[in-house]
């Protein structure tokens, strides 16, 4: 199969869906030249640096029958439009009793790793998870980003896709033919029997590398990528933990009230799965500080392969009383 980058794969999804459906509009603050060339000025719109206007206009367009993509770029810029995300997009379907549909895809980049410092580095998805009404995507591979975005562009709800800024150049196999990936279906990125590691976004790649290393010592790691946080595939995670008896959740986001906490909870609160646990569940997350600029500090505050390996070893070594 051909290999393309994560960035290309995302772009292909937009192009293909815009070809399929003429009632689509794209908004971003910088000009996507290729889209503009193919679909024209009316549909491919450049906004001023006005995130609230962009996020809100997407709602008005969607409520008026136009499927809309709004590319915010960095998730930190999205905070400027928090009213439109949290008070409007997330709630309108519900507040109006489901009388209208709001097919919107918001795209934002998350993550850190390029000395962008605190205001350009963040993984804010758990904040959005806490406000019902938005669907949340966290694609980690070219295949996933294309399939998930295509599903988003056929879904009738506001969807936010968080695309890690460190993944844009990552290559992977992507079929030429049309496909979609259903929301709420985790992907088992590697099968294993000793420990379940649920990894989010770019961490999937680090965890896969660690799993490969540990396999040489005979530790068999099952790597689960939820792919969508809302809806979240609880079943696949619980089933895996019931099999392995061990769980580590790895997330680049800050630890407090994060998605990793949610993943641990859904395992320990489920009696059947809980009874299968052989060790305490563990999180490997970003440290609870704003992201620092200088590289050594920046690397220090996020999970790396060493920390992931240590956590897996710790749950493997646990003997109980």
């Amino acid at each position: 199969m051909r290999e393309i980058t994560y960035r290309q794969a995302g772009n292909e999804a937009i192009i293909e869906e815009f070809r399929r459906n003429k009632k689509t509009v794209h908004m971003s603050a910088d000009l996507p030249a290729d889209l503009r060339q193919e679909f024209g000025e009316a549909r491919i719109r450049v906004t001023p640096v006005s995130e609230s206007a962009m996020v809100g206009a997407a709602i008005g367009l969607a409520g008026s029958g136009y499927r809309t993509v709004a590319n915010i770029r960095m998730a930190t810029f999205g905070f400027v439009a928090m009213d439109q995300f949290m008070n409007q997009a997330a709630k309108i379907t519900y507040m109006f009793g489901g009388q209208a549909r709001f097919p919107i895809l918001y795209r934002m980049t998350n993550g850190l790793g390029s000395s962008a410092a605190a205001q350009h580095s963040i993984n804010p998805y758990s904040m959005f998870m806490n406000v019902p009404g938005l669907k949340i995507l966290l694609p980690s591979t070219p295949y996933d980003v294309k399939g998930l975005l295509k599903t988003a562009l056929r879904d009738d709800n506001p969807v936010i896709s968080f695309e890690h800024m460190g993944l844009g150049g990552v290559k992977g196999a992507v079929p030429e033919e049309d496909y979609t990936i259903p929301f709420g279906q985790a992907d088992i990125k590697r099968k294993g029997t000793d420990v379940t590691v649920v990894a989010l976004s770019k961490m999937v790649h680090d965890v896969l590398a660690v799993a490969e290393e540990l396999s040489k010592e005979g530790i068999s790691v099952e790597v689960i990528d939820p792919r969508t946080l809302v809806p979240l595939d609880r079943e696949t995670i619980r089933k895996s933990v019931a099999k392995t008896g061990r769980l580590v959740a790895v997330d680049e986001a800050c630890q407090t009230c994060g998605a990793a906490a949610e993943i641990l909870s859904l395992v320990v609160e489920d009696t059947k799965t809980f009874e299968r646990l052989r060790a305490p569940t563990k999180r490997v997350c970003g440290l609870d500080v704003p992201v620092p600029f200088s590289p050594l500090m920046e690397q220090y505050v996020v999970p790396d392969r060493e920390k992931i390996t240590a956590a897996i070893r710790e749950v493997m070594a646990y003997q109980g009383k």
């Binding site: 962009m54 809100g56 206009a57 709602i59 008005g60 008026s64 136009y66």
Partner: peptide, 15 residues
């Protein structure tokens, strides 16, 4: 909050 949303509605009308 209604103003950005109205911009979208007006964009739809324009389209």
């Amino acid at each position: 909050a209604g103003l950005p949303i109205a911009c979208g509605a007006a964009t739809a009308a324009q389209l």
